[in-house]
Amino acid sequence: MTQRVELATVIDRLAIDALITEYAVTVDDGDWDAYRQLFVPEGRADYRSAGGIEGGAAEVAAWLAETMRMFPMRQHLVVNRRLEFGALEGDVGDTARVQADYVNPMRFADNTGDSDASTEPDFVCGGRYAFSLLRTPGGWRLRAVAVREKWRRGPHHPDKRPLF
């Protein structure tokens, strides 16, 4: 590789890393408008393995907005990011895939509506994300996000239904 190609790759890696971080922050902060902006217009997300839905970014953002109300405290820690560049129509580097592990401690809303009653998480889950990205004129955007929940620790529900 030439120095110029290596520098471009580093710049792309930093931009993709920032996008993945922004994804986690928008979910944690409940910024659903910003969440939708992270995706290409036809972008999709799949949360079925965690008891959620699969659909277009706008549909999933609306679902998350409703579902995440039960967790006023949440913090996605996205680690062990593995990045692979692909090609679109012969132009190397127009697509990328990221596989990243996550740990997500959250706190249920209490019955009084006081989210500050305790700061200790009472629900924690973990798994792996699969991100598919596309280089656009506006920068890197998400084409698809798939959540593969591997484990969870939290209150036991006698009927063993998913929490959401």
Rank of each mutant, 00 (worst) to 15 (best):
V5K: 11
L7G: 06
A8E: 12
T9I: 01
V10D: 07
I11M: 12
R13M: 14
L14R: 08
I16R: 14
A18G: 14
L19D: 07
T21N: 03
A24L: 08
G30C: 11
D31Y: 07
W32Y: 07
F39T: 12
V40K: 03
E42Q: 15
E42P: 10
R44C: 07
R44L: 06
A45T: 08
R48G: 09
S49Y: 07
S49I: 05
S49C: 08
A50H: 00
A50E: 01
G51P: 07
G52L: 01
I53C: 00
A58L: 02
E59R: 09
E59C: 04
V60L: 01
V60R: 01
A61V: 14
A62R: 08
W63A: 09
A65P: 10
A65V: 08
A65Y: 07
T67H: 06
M68T: 05
M68H: 06
R69F: 00
R69D: 01
M70E: 12
F71Q: 00
F71W: 05
P72T: 13
Q75N: 14
L77Y: 12
V78N: 14
V79Q: 10
N80R: 00
N80L: 00
R81T: 15
E84H: 07
E84P: 06
F85E: 10
G86I: 09
G86L: 11
A87G: 05
A87C: 05
L88R: 11
L88S: 09
E89C: 05
E89I: 01
G93K: 03
T95R: 15
T95W: 09
R97F: 00
R97V: 08
Q99C: 03
D101S: 06
Y102F: 14
P105N: 03
P105L: 02
M106A: 13
R107Q: 12
N111L: 13
N111W: 11
D114C: 05
S115Y: 07
A117M: 05
D122P: 06
D122I: 11
D122F: 08
G126M: 01
G126R: 02
G127Q: 01
G127S: 02
G127L: 01
Y129I: 13
Y129H: 13
S132F: 08
S132L: 12
L133N: 11
R135Y: 00
R135S: 04
G139N: 05
G139M: 01
R143W: 11
V145T: 09
V147C: 03
R148D: 11
E149T: 15
E149I: 14
K150Y: 00
R152I: 06
R153P: 07
P155N: 12
P155D: 13
P155K: 10
H156L: 14
P158D: 04
R161I: 06
P162H: 06
L163W: 07
L163F: 11
F164S: 11
F164R: 10
F164G: 09
